[in-house]
């Protein structure tokens, strides 16, 4: 599944990285605890999270995550979006909650990353 396909499935708005949506997703992880993400996430991963602070961006940087998806219409600050842009990462926001967003992606065949 590509990021573009994932965005369509969860009706996400792409905030950064419109030109990078053809990347293939390795795995998807849904969590608000960054230590869990750091412990279990694999390569080429996408993170769905309800946490919206700079540490999400830092975690993404450490793990080279390809995309961050904020749930429940959460929107990062302009500074956070700038960080993501500098790092070449895709950022999206979806109106779905965690359970629904993960469920829709899982049902569409996306591989699970951690939980």
């Amino acid at each position: 599944m590509t990021l573009r396909e994932a965005a369509k499935i969860i009706e996400a708005e792409v905030l950064v990285g419109e030109d990078k949506l053809d990347q293939e997703i390795g795995s998807i992880c849904g969590s608000d605890m960054m230590s869990e993400v750091l412990a279990f996430t694999k390569d080429q991963s996408v993170l769905l999270t309800g946490l919206c602070n700079t540490q999400v961006l830092r975690t993404a940087d450490m793990l080279d995550l390809i995309c961050l998806i904020f749930i429940r219409d959460k929107k990062p600050t302009p500074e956070m979006l700038e960080m993501a842009e500098d790092d070449g990462r895709v950022v999206m926001t979806t109106h779905f909650g965690m359970f629904s967003a993960c469920g829709k992606l899982y049902a569409a065949g996306a591989g699970a990353g951690c939980m």
Binding site: D32, M33, M34, E36, A39, L51, N53, Q55, V56
Partner: peptide
């Protein structure tokens, strides 16, 4: 915890 840390995974992650 509200900031996304404090799950008791830090030191084990460092060792791992």
């Amino acid at each position: 915890r509200n900031l996304g840390f404090g799950a008791g995974m830090g030191l084990p992650n460092m060792k791992k």
